[in-house]
Simulated assay, not measured.
Amino acid sequence: MRAPLGVILAGGQATRMGGSDDNLVDKGLLQLGTKPILSHVIDRFDPQVGGLILNANGDANRFSAFHVPVIPDASGELAGPLAGILAGLDYAAERGFDHIVTAAADTPFLPADLVPQLQLQSEITAAPVVLSATPCPERKQQRQPTFGLWSVTLRDDLRAALNDGLRKIVAFTQPRGNAYAEFALTGDVNPFFNVNTPQDLTQAHDILKG
């Protein structure tokens, strides 16, 4: 399988960090250690993919220091991560990629083997979408749907679903037979830990130190 296009999703409003319709807050630009969270994400994600773009709304110049193409949501309605995924699928299809892998911009400890494990499950199951998961004692698996391998053949279906008002990733993927790749915890650290609140940022600093 050809290396997929990596799509970092940063199109949310970050309401728990004080964001709103009129005040977009970029969690990826928050400082973690010696560099922004987004730099941690890029450093872990970029070696795994055949190209990298950032999905974000608003003025793209605020990300110029990262030297990554910035594309907005497929619609201007802030329709959640599916809109960013569609934008990534369209961008990938125009450039000859067969798949994209998505990751969130606020997850500085994402798995270093994210893409290989997703691709492995894709080859085993032939599923058009492979989403990530972690072990969970109560439910066997905790889904991490923002992190997934997507075939570009899904983009027309996804466009229609968004136009019909669908907003949940799993609501789109389950009827299409998605598979899951499970990633182990590293000690007590969830590799998909994301920074949603100021308290989470403090915890991320503690994890980084550890």
Rank of each mutant, 00 (worst) to 15 (best):
R2G: 01
P4G: 05
V7G: 03
G11W: 03
A14L: 02
T15S: 14
T15L: 09
R16E: 15
G18L: 12
G18Y: 13
G19P: 09
D21P: 00
N23R: 15
V25C: 12
V25R: 08
G28D: 03
L29Q: 11
L29D: 05
L30P: 04
L30F: 15
G33F: 11
K35I: 06
K35D: 12
I37E: 07
L38G: 06
L38S: 07
D46N: 11
P47C: 09
Q48D: 12
V49F: 01
G50C: 06
G50Y: 03
G50Q: 03
G51D: 10
I53F: 08
N55V: 15
N55P: 00
N57L: 04
D59G: 06
D59R: 13
A60M: 09
S64E: 14
F66H: 12
P69I: 07
P72A: 09
A74D: 08
A74G: 11
A74T: 12
S75C: 02
G76K: 09
G76Q: 09
L78W: 05
A79T: 07
G80Q: 13
P81H: 04
L82N: 11
A83E: 11
G84F: 03
G84Q: 06
A87R: 03
G88M: 02
Y91T: 00
A92I: 03
A92N: 05
E94N: 04
R95A: 04
R95E: 07
G96D: 11
G96I: 11
F97S: 00
F97L: 01
F97W: 12
F97Y: 15
H99S: 03
T102F: 08
T102D: 06
A103H: 01
A103W: 00
D106W: 13
T107F: 02
F109P: 01
D113E: 14
L120P: 00
Q121T: 07
Q121D: 02
S122K: 10
E123D: 11
I124C: 02
A126L: 12
A126T: 13
A126R: 14
P128E: 11
P135N: 11
Q142W: 13
Q144P: 00
F147A: 02
F147R: 00
G148W: 04
L149A: 04
L154F: 03
L154Y: 01
L154I: 09
D156A: 15
R159D: 09
R159T: 06
A160I: 11
A161D: 11
N163A: 13
D164E: 15
D164W: 04
G165T: 05
L166D: 08
V170E: 15
V170Q: 10
A171Q: 14
T173K: 14
Q174M: 13
R176N: 12
R176F: 10
E182H: 01
E182L: 03
F183N: 00
A184T: 10
A184W: 00
D188N: 10
D188P: 01
P191Y: 00
P191W: 00
P191V: 01
F192T: 01
F193L: 08
N196S: 12
T197C: 08
T197G: 09
P198F: 10
Q199H: 10
T202V: 15
Q203H: 14
A204P: 10
L208C: 06
